Amino acid sequence: MMRDTDNVELSAAWDVVPDVAAAQGRYETAVKLRREFPRGKTPAEALTAVRDDAIARFKATGKWSATFAKDAAKAHSDAVAWQAEADALFSLEAIAKRTAEDLRDALSGDVLTHLGGRLAEILDAAKRAGEALGDVTSAEQAIEAGADALDAWRRLTGLLTDFRNVREAQWSVLRSVAGEDERTRLRQWRGAGHGEVQGVRLDDIPPHIADVMRSQAYSIEYLVWLARSGSASVPKSYDDLEFSVTAASEPVAYDDAGPLVDLSPRVTIERERKPLNTRREPRPFID
């Protein structure tokens, strides 16, 4: 089975990349061919069947089959041909699967870009629904608030499912193109709350929102906050995520020593020095 084919957002992202979609189609065709290939016998099974049939007839009639060798040769030949095609179809499925997955990885940037577009669509709709929701933060409050708030809550419930799928798809793609050490860092970054927003320091995010980022226990309240913040993003690559993590984690540097002083070498004009006049004029002689 292909990786993560149960995630509708990831499948849709793969489908919009032409080369990936074509490779996926070929894989599905290979699976269909392999499953529909009729059941047959291996060469050993075929020869055993011919032998058992000849023995059974001998027991019944006392006569040995005059066509045993011919029957055995044909059965074996047919079985060899069946076995060759069956093996080829199994290999075809495996190769088509590997090719499709390799293309997904090679074109992961296109897939992540599509997921970023989907995230923008989801959050744009969530922002509009959040405006109708007002200060409502639970289904019970939405029922009490009336039809508009209840309709907004229902829309946000569906959008929350889409949002979860986009985030899971994002991490699946990033893991697929990462090495073992990089996958370890991805788990650490995700657990620390990274990969949700860009251009915002985690220390500047409200604590209850940061808790959701770390746990991925997404809620409608979080979805609305994220939509209003305008800072949500899908990393375009592992390097893009790493840059975002560094920017969001490094402490802000302050200068406690006052204004910066330029300590670079200064170029000064050397003054022309005149030699001292050490010659003494003779005094006039007075008698």
Score class of each variant (00 low, 15 high):
192 A>D: 15
139 A>L: 03
144 E>R: 12
265 P>Y: 01
248 A>P: 03
11 S>H: 02
121 E>V: 01
30 A>V: 02
42 T>H: 15
54 A>E: 06
70 K>H: 08
267 V>Y: 11
36 E>P: 09
119 L>P: 03
157 T>C: 09
181 D>G: 14
242 E>C: 03
174 L>C: 08
20 V>E: 11
121 E>Y: 00
228 R>A: 08
139 A>H: 06
178 A>M: 06
209 I>W: 05
23 A>Y: 07
20 V>S: 14
132 A>Q: 06
38 P>F: 03
228 R>K: 04
186 L>G: 05
141 Q>V: 00
282 P>A: 15
229 S>I: 05
173 V>L: 07
174 L>Y: 12
258 G>H: 04
220 I>F: 11
19 D>P: 12
275 P>Q: 09
257 A>H: 15
131 E>W: 00
181 D>S: 11
149 A>K: 01
223 L>R: 12
249 S>M: 04
172 S>D: 13
140 E>Y: 00
158 G>R: 10
225 W>A: 10
188 Q>T: 10
90 F>Y: 08
95 I>P: 12
236 K>W: 01
275 P>F: 10
114 H>R: 14
80 V>P: 13
131 E>V: 07
154 R>F: 09
237 S>D: 10
119 L>H: 03
66 A>K: 15
139 A>D: 10
203 D>K: 08
223 L>D: 07
208 H>E: 12
196 E>N: 11
40 G>E: 08
117 G>M: 03
76 H>V: 05
239 D>M: 02
36 E>A: 15
200 V>Y: 01
227 A>Q: 07
118 R>K: 06
241 L>G: 09
84 A>K: 13
266 R>G: 10
72 A>K: 11
190 R>P: 02
273 R>S: 05
247 A>D: 09
21 A>H: 07
186 L>Q: 08
261 V>M: 06
227 A>P: 04
279 R>Y: 14
75 A>I: 06
231 S>G: 05
252 V>T: 14
50 V>N: 09
287 D>Q: 10
197 V>F: 06
182 E>R: 07
108 S>M: 00
23 A>R: 10
104 R>T: 13
202 L>P: 02
282 P>G: 15
282 P>I: 13
132 A>V: 02
218 Y>I: 03
196 E>P: 01
37 F>H: 12
95 I>K: 15
50 V>F: 02
97 K>H: 12
180 E>Y: 06
249 S>N: 01
175 R>V: 03
48 T>A: 15
10 L>A: 13
249 S>H: 00
220 I>H: 13
31 V>K: 11
172 S>P: 05
287 D>L: 04
236 K>I: 01
103 L>G: 09
87 D>Y: 02
